[in-house]
Amino acid sequence: MIALLKRDLALAVRAGGGFGLGLAFFLIVIVLVPFGVGPQAELLTRIAPGILWVAALLAALLSLDRIFALDHEDGSLPLLATSPLPLEAVALVKGVAHWITTGLPLTLAAPALGFLLNLQPSAYGFLLITLLVGTPALSMIGTFGAALTVGLRRGGLLLSLLVLPLYIPTLIFGAEAVRRGADGFSATNALVLQGGITLGVFAFLPFATAAALRVNLR
């Protein structure tokens, strides 16, 4: 498992691509928002947590179709399937690798972009924590979606259609926790529920992902 993780990380760094692009997309969306809604500071402050969450979610979506597509094209997938590594572990590692290359950088960049949207000072901590807890779930759910669409040409759009509805609970609890935390209410409930979703997703989705991969390998 470590070997696969190391390889995927090395590939992500060397191929460039996904790493920087997701972050750039995140930045651009955040820059576009004030152009769309106007520059009033109070308005931006109010919508900042939600916008940051939605933008991070969309940025994480961008690189999903690459999770299995490259391994499918060059034939690594059937070779991994016949290796001692169970496909469930492959699915888990793919999700973790996607998070390290996408979710983690987005999480770290989010506070910096918070300045652009005039995010309340009290919200920064919550933004960081909710993204840290929530983005792994986004990566794992996305890995599941990628496994469903791995054999398809032009699967990218379908992948978004399949994955976005599955993102709803994570988004709701994440953005809600930031909002509540920033306004001085207790964010514990939302955070705990979000953490629960992340744990559940990592416990069960690798199995569904592996099942989908097996079907697609046939």
Partner: peptide, 9 residues
């Protein structure tokens, strides 16, 4: 013939 060789490695 598809042997899982990564061009970047």
């Amino acid at each position: 013939h598809a042997d899982g060789i990564k061009a970047q490695l």
